[in-house]
């Protein structure tokens, strides 16, 4: 064949390593700076006494309360208990949301029927469900988990069907003209195109679940971060309450970071829009 000059340069690999590293460390540094400013403001609020009543404990008071909780009352165990509940809740909730999300994205009629319902149930605060859950599930572990499943499911379902119905119809067409049957269109195109949305759904469900864990542990829980916070509240151990709350935030943050890492490993093909 005749030859046309074809530019053959090596493919552009990921951004230069040095730039990426400095970008990441810059982001981390800014995150730390933000947290430091927040702690400083907290300190000022605590010592100024502008909050009436029992006031706000100083950061160092909370820190030493945390030390005592970890060393003498095994707070790590509470973290593990809550984390297990959240993980079970998110896993079950997302697994249920997955087929529902696909169905709603695939059948517009179904979606039109279900969307208001989904939004209705999603808007209900989980704490309002606690009495009802006790009536139906009693006060065991199942009751607590069911609240987390509920919260995870509705959060994940919304993200999933929004995401899956935004898949480029052109890709579906391209798959069909290459000879794919409906099952192959689903398995070879819809499913891989949904993976990023699945990750987002799980991350949103995790966030919602951590926000719900205190409500879930209102159901007669002995251990867990929510139970620890309520316990501290009963005895007016204000710094201990702060420790519990901070641990919820920290654990949720950590789990989200881990998921983000896994996601970026598994979906290297994705175009970054940032």
């Amino acid at each position: 064949m005749t030859t046309t000059t074809v530019t053959r340069s090596a493919p552009r690999r990921r951004r230069p390593a040095a730039g990426a590293v400095s970008g990441t460390s810059r982001r981390v540094a800014l995150g730390v700076l933000g947290a430091a400013i927040a702690v400083a403001i907290w300190y000022l609020v605590a010592v100024s006494g502008i909050v009436s009543g029992r006031g706000v404990p100083r950061p160092d008071e909370v820190l030493s309360a945390g030390w005592v909780l970890f060393t003498e009352q095994d707070l790590l165990f509470d973290i593990r208990v809550s984390m297990t509940r959240v993980c079970i809740g998110v896993t079950i909730g997302s697994l249920l949301a997955l087929p529902v999300g696909f169905l709603l994205a695939w059948y517009p009629t179904l979606r039109a029927m279900a969307e208001p319902l989904v939004n209705f149930f999603r808007a209900l605060p989980p704490i309002a469900l606690v009495p009802l859950v006790i009536v139906y599930f009693g006060i065991g572990e199942n009751a607590r988990i069911s609240i987390l499943v509920y919260a995870s499911f509705f959060a994940a379902v919304i993200v999933l069907f929004e995401g899956i119905s935004s898949i480029d119809p052109l890709l579906v067409r391209a798959t069909r003209v290459l000879g794919a049957n409906p099952w192959e269109v689903f398995a070879r195109t819809v499913v891989p195109a949904s993976v990023p949305h699945l990750f987002t759904a799980v991350r949103v469900a995790l966030g919602v679940s951590w926000a719900t864990v205190v409500a879930a542990e209102l159901v007669a829980a002995q251990r867990g971060l929510g139970a620890a916070i309520q316990d501290a509240a009963t005895f007016y151990r204000i710094p201990d309450m702060y420790v519990g709350i901070a641990m919820i935030g920290a654990t949720a943050l950590l789990m989200d970071l881990v998921l983000k890492l896994v996601q970026s490993r598994l979906t290297t093909w994705q175009e970054k829009t940032r």
Binding site: A174, L178, N181, P192, W269
Partner: peptide, 26 residues
């Protein structure tokens, strides 16, 4: 069909994209 907006599969490598049609049942 070749579409104006390419419509290649972003989760597949170039080689896997070209191979795609030959891996389908039909």
């Amino acid at each position: 069909v070749v579409f104006q907006q390419y419509a290649i599969f972003p989760w597949l490598t170039v080689a896997k994209n070209i191979e795609f049609g030959l891996t389908l049942r039909a």
